[in-house]
Design a protein around this nucleic acid. Structure first.
Length: 447
RNA sequence: GACCCUAUCGUCCAGUGGUUAGGACACUCCCCUUUCACGGGAGUAACACGGGUUCGAAUCCCGUUAGGGUCACCA
C-alpha cells in the first residue's frame, strides 16, 4: 500500500473511447487500486475546437460502465484542478515563464515558442520495458536533418501537447505515468522538459498497443475498437474488463476468469508484456458468455431489463425470473435475451416458417398434438419431471418415439424449433397457457 | 531515412539453460441430449531465420528479416 502514488488517465475528447485507451485507463486504475493510491482523470482538450460536452460524456460513460472510478477529475474535483486543459491556461503560462527565465526556450521566426532540446544521451528505467537508452544527439527527421526543437506554444498562443502534458503531470503531482507504447519515443523529450523545469521525472511504464487480430493497426471503424460498441452490443462490463486486463498482462498462472478484486490484488506492471496484443473478439465473447452463465440471477435480471424494455418485451413480474433462468446458460450477448424469451410475453406469438415446415407440416404432427394435449389435460402437478414422464409414457403406449411429440409441442407453444427445454418451458407456461397454445396451433394449422 | 520497442500454436497467456514446449479462445471429432446451447473427453496447431556462447538453448549474445512506434505550430 502506498497512498502517495498518483496516476492519471488523460484522454483527448475525440468523441469515442478506443479499446486501447480504455485498457490504458484500466491499467492505471488497477495500479492505483492495487497500491491504494489515487487515480486521476484529466481531459486533454487543448486546441480541440473548444470543448464538446458530448465527446467528454463518451469518456465518462465508458469509464463508468467499466467501473473505473476516478478520485480526482471532472465531477470529482480534487486539490489539483481544474482537470480540463482548456481551463489551465495560467498554469501553462507560469511554467513557460519559468522556462523563458531559464533561457531554455526561444521564439522562432514565426512567433512560436520552442524548447531548446539538450541533444544529450539519455536513459531511463521503464517499469514495463526496462532500461531505455537513447542518444538524443543522433535523432534526425525524415530528411536526415537534426530533429527540430520542440514547439511548446503555437504562434496563435495555443499550447502543445508534450508541454502541457508534462506540466500537468508535474502540477498534479503524478508519480507514475502509465501510457501506451506509442509514447515511448516521446519520453526522452518529456524527461528533458522535466529536467529543464527542475523537477524529478515520474516513473514511466509503457504498455503495448492493441492491434487488430491480423496485426494491423486498430482504427475507429474496426470491430471492437470503440467502447460504445460494448455498451451497445450486450456485453457485461465485468467480463469485458476481465478480457481487457488479460491483453498484455497475466497473473502468471492459468487463471483467466477472475473477479475484479482478485485482479486488483494480483495486478503488477512488472508482469505486463512488451509485445503488442492482437485483439480477438471471439475470446471476449467467450468471457461474456461465461460471466452471464455464472452470475446470480438477480444480476442477470438487472442487466437484461434494459434490453427487454428496449425490445418492448414485457414479462409478467411474477414469471420474469423463471423465464430468464430458462435461457441464461445459452446467452452470449444480452442483445439476444429479448428474442429468446419474447414468446412468453404474448399468446399471439408468431410461428417461424421453417419451424412449421420442419415439424408441424409433417404427417401426423397435429394428431400428436391432440394426443399430447389430452394426456396433459389431466397431469398434476404440471412440472417438468412429471411432464417428461407422462410424455414418454404416452410415446411408449402409442409405440412412437418421444421426439414425435417433443418437436411439434415445442413449435406449438413457442412458435420456434429451438429454445428452452420443452418440459421446463411448459412448466413455466403453466397448464392453462400451454394447452391453450397447443389448441391455437391445432386450429391455425388444421388442414 | 534516424531512433526506439517487439518476435512461442490462427489469437491471448505461461514457459527465463535440460519440459513429451503447458493453459485458454477458435477449429475438428466423440460423449451427453427433445431442439439450440452448456458440460465432459479427444485431436490438429508454435519456439521467424542465420550465426555464436554452452556438455546442452524457446530461454543468453550478435546479425538478418518481419511487425509496431516516434521523429508536427495533432493529442
Amino acid at each position: 500500500m502506498n497512498p502517495e502514488i498518483r496516476v492519471r488517465f488523460a484522454p483527448s475528447p475525440t468523441g469515442y473511447l478506443h479499446v486501447g485507451g480504455a485498457r490504458t485507463a484500466l491499467f492505471n486504475w488497477l495500479f492505483a487500486r492495487h497500491h491504494g493510491g489515487k487515480f486521476i482523470l484529466r481531459i486533454e482538450d487543448t486546441d480541440r475546437a473548444r470543448h464538446h460536452e458530448d465527446a467528454v460524456q463518451v469518456i465518462y460513460d465508458g469509464l463508468r460502465w467499466l467501473g473505473l472510478d476516478w478520485d480526482e477529475g471532472p465531477h470529482a474535483d480534487g486539490p489539483h484542478g481544474p482537470y480540463f486543459q482548456s481551463k489551465r491556461e495560467t498554469i501553462y503560462q507560469r511554467y513557460a515563464d519559468q522556462l523563458i527565465a531559464a533561457g531554455r526556450v526561444y521564439a522562432d521566426e514565426n512567433g512560436a515558442l520552442r524548447f531548446r532540446l539538450p541533444r544529450q544521451p539519455l536513459a531511463f528505467d521503464d517499469m514495463v520495458c526496462g532500461r531505455i537508452e537513447v542518444d538524443r544527439s543522433k535523432s534526425q527527421n525524415r530528411e536526415g536533418e537534426l530533429e527540430a526543437d520542440m514547439t511548446i506554444r503555437r504562434a496563435d498562443g495555443g499550447w502543445i501537447f508534450h508541454f502541457v502534458n508534462v506540466v500537468d503531470d508535474i502540477d498534479m503531482r503524478i508519480t507514475h505515468v502509465i501510457r501506451g507504447e506509442d509514447h515511448l519515443s516521446n519520453t526522452a523529450k518529456h524527461i528533458e522538459l522535466y529536467q529543464a523545469l527542475g523537477v524529478e521525472p515520474p516513473r514511466f511504464g509503457h504498455i503495448p498497443l492493441i492491434l487488430n487480430k491480423d496485426g494491423s493497426k486498430m482504427s475507429k471503424r474496426d470491430t471492437g475498437a470503440s467502447i460504445t460498441s460494448y455498451l451497445d452490443g450486450g456485453y457485461v462490463p465485468e467480463a469485458v474488463l476481465n478480457y481487457f486486463c488479460l491483453l498484455g498482462w497475466s497473473p502468471k498462472d492459468d487463471r483467466e476468469i477472475m473477479p475484479r478484486e482478485e485482479i486488483v490484488a494480483r495486478f503488477d506492471l512488472a508482469n505486463v508484456n512488451r509485445k503488442g496484443a492482437h485483439f480477438d473478439l471471439a475470446k471476449c465473447d467467450w468471457f461474456n458468455a461465461q460471466y452471464l452463465q455464472q452470475m446470480p440471477l438477480e444480476r442477470y435480471r438487472e442487466l437484461s431489463a434494459p434490453w427487454l424494455a428496449k425490445a418492448g418485451v414485457a414479462l409478467p413480474a411474477g414469471q420474469l425470473d423463471a423465464v430468464l433462468a430458462l435461457e441464461k446458460m445459452k446467452v452470449t450477448h444480452l442483445t439476444e435475451v429479448p428474442e429468446r424469451v419474447a414468446f412468453f410475453a404474448t399468446e399471439d406469438f408468431p410461428y417461424e416458417p421453417v419451424a412449421v415446415e420442419k415439424t408441424l407440416g409433417k404427417p401426423g404432427a397435429l394428431d400428436r398434438l391432440a394426443q399430447l394435449a389430452e394426456c396433459y389435460a389431466g397431469v398434476e402437478p404440471f412440472d417438468a419431471v412429471t411432464l417428461e414422464a407422462k410424455l414418454k409414457e404416452l410415446a411408449t403406449t402409442l409405440a412412437v418415439k418421444p421426439a414425435e411429440f417433443i418437436h411439434p409441442a415445442r413449435v406449438a407453444v413457442s412458435g420456434r424449433s429451438v429454445g428452452p427445454s420443452l418440459y421446463h418451458m411448459l412448466e413455466v407456461l403453466g397448464k392453462e397457457r400451454a394447452l391453450a397454445r397447443i389448441a391455437r396451433t391445432r386450429r391455425e394449422f388444421a388442414a
